[in-house]
Amino acid sequence: MNFILHIWRQENPQDAGGFKTYTLDNVAADSSFLEMLDQLNEQLIQAGETAIVFDYDCREGICGACSLVINGYVHGKQQRTTTCQLYMREYADEKELWIEPWRASAFPVVQDLTVDRTAFDRIIQAGGFVEVSTGSAPEANTLLVDKHSADEAFNSATCIGCGACVAVCPNASASLFVAAKVGHLSYLPQGAITAKDRALKMTRAMFKEGFGVCSNHRHCQTQCPKSISVSNIALMNKLLSWS
């Protein structure tokens, strides 16, 4: 497979940045999308050019490091998939690819395709936890959790913090990310005591970081690689209205 690639290059947060066009030939259909970029980078290094910076780590869809908007879609065209789990055979019918970083003012571009997502860490620090010091926990089975709640909590807890929900939202809201954590901990008795306080603190932190408010487009749910449901946002709003 041969491709013409239009890739966003930006030296630093202040730089205006822009697309640069590359051609890449002999891409294997079984290459992952990031391996295709590795191949391009090897070609650039051979030519003495600076390699393109992009975030990646586990390459199995769980660490949440990879991102990329590909031809207008966050994490590419396949649903419920992170970019690292996307394979080039999915692009067999295409010749040109436009590859960009996440776009949101709360996620400033660091360099090329890499953005700064530390705002997410600060939102968690604002209240995304159950405070329990090491050693003070009671015997695990003294705390029963009905299976339905445990399953719901787990579904919300599978958020990988990649930021696709923000990147796809017309309002750059982080509501799905925040609500996933609020949902995870509020479904469980361990986190229920501080549920209202948590929702309030995390939402405030979200606005402080410059993310927008949820505008009910629900693109986030459609594009979330882990299928986190917007019902978490409803739960979060309920908690907020009570607090």
């Binding site: 926990a137 009671p138 445990a150 787990f154």
Partner: peptide, 15 residues
């Protein structure tokens, strides 16, 4: 296990 459960780690549960 005690510590993780107290933190809200959503382990699998029986009915």
């Amino acid at each position: 296990i005690d510590q993780a459960v107290a933190q809200g780690v959503p382990f699998a549960r029986e009915y």
